[in-house]
């Protein structure tokens, strides 16, 4: 397995799928001639031309709708929305058209479209460029939501999303495009449902997804070496549908749970995982589950304020220590 960067993994998935099927196209702002803000579509314009690598105007709702309309006829568009903050503008088409068309047409139409968009705090981008919005997408019937935590998942999830007959939203993180990881040399399809045990443990389960998986892994390391606590890290790469069985299985084993998310707490991934724990394994718990999350504020510009607003691995460690009465 070769180590490549997250953006390279995405680029490779685009390239392979476009080479395989002439009806796979990609579209978005600056993705063609400019090569993509985060390079996920680098070199594709030169290789596949302007009919299939479409530089769009800054009209999020309508270029998203255009991709959805094309998907009704079997085209498989990969639509990049430059920042998830701009996806608010495209939600009408994503939610009202893509997610509902299969149901309201009685199964006649489906929208096999992939939406890719990064969110998250990435060095003082301020309130309108730093939001996380996975909780908004994961509440929508008819829309799949996945969120890769490493290059292997980024590659494999995009490959699977392109082949899926459902609309899939891929939630990426602006900080992670240059992160490295191993990706199989051969073709690899990551499942769009389920979860992954990123580190096995026995005393507490740390649930993370996307960037927070890395906080959890770092926290698990510290907990093991400094506090003799064995933490299991579960990577929730699929946010909709969530892996009910996987969540249950791990919590039944460890009897304690911490859910880490960069998003704000209300109506979020943590809230949803806690609800599942309540429903599935309440009597297996040795302590009440805890959420680690951002402060409920628009992201501040000032660096110190920004760091105070978002959690990190230390917050995860502290949450676990509280669970064990050690803090």
């Amino acid at each position: 397995m070769a180590e490549i960067m997250y953006w390279e993994a995405l680029q490779r998935a685009h390239d392979e799928e476009m080479a395989r099927d002439p009806l796979v196209i990609c579209m978005g702002e600056d993705i063609g001639v400019a090569g993509g803000t985060y390079k996920a579509t680098k070199g594709l314009y030169e290789k596949y031309g302007p009919l299939r690598v479409i530089d769009t105007p800054i009209s999020e709702n309508s270029y998203t709708g255009l991709g959805i309309g094309a998907s009704f006829l079997g085209v498989r568009p990969i639509i990049e929305i430059m920042s998830v903050n701009f996806a608010w503008l495209a939600m009408d088409q994503m939610f009202n058209s893509a997610a509902k068309v299969r149901y309201m047409s009685g199964g006649q139409l489906t929208a096999p479209v992939v939406f890719r968009s990064p969110g998250g705090s990435a060095h003082q981008l301020g309130a309108q460029h730093s939001a996380r919005m996975e909780k908004v997408f994961m509440g929508i019937a008819g829309l799949r939501v996945v969120t890769p935590s490493n290059p292997k998942q980024a590659y494999g999830l995009l490959k699977s999303a392109v082949r899926s007959d459902d609309p899939v939203f891929i939630n990426e993180h602006e900080l992670m495009y240059n992160w490295k990881g191993e990706v199989p040399e051969g073709e690899y399809f990551h499942p769009l449902e389920g979860s992954e045990i990123a580190r096995s443990g026995t005393d507490v389960t740390l649930f993370g997804y996307n960037i927070s998986v890395h906080w959890c892994l770092k926290a698990a390391e510290i907990l093991a070496s400094q506090y003799n606590i064995s933490a299991e890290v579960v990577d929730l790469y699929a946010l909709s549908p969530l892996d009910r069985a996987g969540i249950k299985q791990s919590v039944c084993k460890t009897h304690r749970a911490v859910i880490a998310e960069e998003d704000e707490a209300p109506c979020g991934v943590g809230a949803e995982v806690m609800a599942i724990i309540n429903e599935e394994c309440f009597f297996d718990l040795d302590a009440a589950p805890v959420r680690v999350h951002s402060a409920l504020v628009p992201q501040p510009y000032n660096h110190k304020l920004e760091m105070a607003a978002i959690p990190d691995h230390e917050d995860v460690v502290n949450a676990v220590l509280k669970l064990f009465g050690k803090a």
Binding site: L23, I68, A70, V75, Q93
Partner: peptide, 18 residues
């Protein structure tokens, strides 16, 4: 959704073009 079909119609046309 009033106006919702505009981009969908353009997308269908894009598929025809492809």
């Amino acid at each position: 959704l009033v106006g919702g079909p505009f981009p969908l119609a353009a997308g269908i046309a894009k598929a025809i073009q492809l």
